[in-house]
Simulated scan of single mutants.
Amino acid sequence: MTREAYAFTRSFAPTGPTELLVDRHYLLCASTGALRLEAEGQRWLLPPARAALLRAGRPCTVAIPQPATTASVLFHVDFVAPPPQDLTVFDLDPLARALVAECGAWQEADEPLPAYARAIFGALAAVAWRLAESPSPVVMPAGRSAEVRKALQLTEERLGDEVRFEDVAAAVGLAPRSLARRFEAEVGMTWRATLRRMRVLRAVEHLAADDTPVTTIAHEVGYGSLSAFNAAFRELTGATPSDYRATFTG
């Protein structure tokens, strides 16, 4: 009999998109660095002190743009109920972090868990499933059509520059008005709002990477004004860049 649940910690070098598919419900917690996740047409950023909950048997694409360390906890499908969504990213509270750390004592093995370990893994599942009901706002824009996906890629590549919507539309072969309608229909927001969100999420990745000053990060993601950057960051995350960085260490 394989274990009802087990945990492990692992460090990763930067890698491009790879598919992750496991036969257990998967709680993936970022400790350092930030991961990019995509499943069922949704894209998420996973910065430190947050967790992703993946349903067993559902594929997820993972990209690691910078060195990262993660803690993983896997639950047998007969041990816990299915997560509410295929993929959810949420903030870890102190109780969840303590339970993840405690679960780290039991790695993959053939023998079943002792009673104490079963209780700890069960408690972690209960807490994580509850936290997943309040997803993190770090959802990355995603499109369905080739044109919108290419427009998103081009926009992301030019975040630090004076990127113009008309230039992006021309590059994907659509009139600006047509591309604007596509953004509203597929992304659920305007291109300008998408650009603002992408810049904030890129800033989150920079904040997770090292101790680069916030002012430097603001310029690197395309903001000439620190106050405008702080306002956009707070609008999405509910915190200033400095306060958000402080949450990475709990």
Rank of each mutant, 00 (worst) to 15 (best):
S242W: 02
E102C: 01
A13Q: 13
F183W: 06
T2W: 03
G188F: 08
A30L: 06
L174D: 03
I64M: 04
H219P: 00
L45I: 00
S242Y: 03
R245A: 14
A125M: 06
C29A: 14
T247A: 02
T2S: 14
A101E: 13
P141Y: 05
L87F: 06
E102W: 01
T240M: 00
R55D: 01
T88P: 02
F248G: 03
G57K: 02
P241G: 02
V22Q: 13
G222I: 12
L195N: 07
R192E: 15
P67H: 02
W191G: 09
V187Y: 03
L207S: 05
R149M: 13
P241F: 05
A52S: 11
L45V: 10
R181K: 13
K150H: 15
D23G: 09
C103H: 03
E156T: 15
L74W: 01
E19L: 12
R245E: 05
E108Y: 11
L37C: 10
S242N: 00
P47C: 06
E102M: 13
A30E: 09
E38S: 14
A232N: 09
A185T: 11
P65V: 10
F248N: 06
F121M: 07
R130S: 12
L35N: 01
D110S: 12
E186H: 08
A109R: 12
A232S: 15
Q153I: 05
T155M: 14
P48Y: 09
V148Y: 06
P213F: 09
G173E: 10
Y6Q: 02
P137S: 03
R144D: 12
F165M: 08
V200C: 09
V127W: 10
A7F: 04
P65Q: 11
L159T: 07
A126W: 03
T247P: 00
A49C: 12
G238Y: 04
I120T: 15
V187E: 09
T15C: 03
Q107G: 15
I64L: 13
Q153R: 15
W129R: 12
A56V: 08
T240V: 00
M140D: 05
R192H: 14
W129D: 11
T215R: 09
L207T: 02
A239Y: 05
R202H: 11
A98V: 01
E111R: 11
R182V: 03
E4F: 03
L195W: 04
V139S: 07
R24M: 02
V148G: 07
A96Q: 11
S227F: 03
C103E: 02
A68R: 07
R177H: 13
E111V: 12
L159G: 09
A117M: 00
F90Y: 15
F75W: 08
A7P: 04
A239H: 12
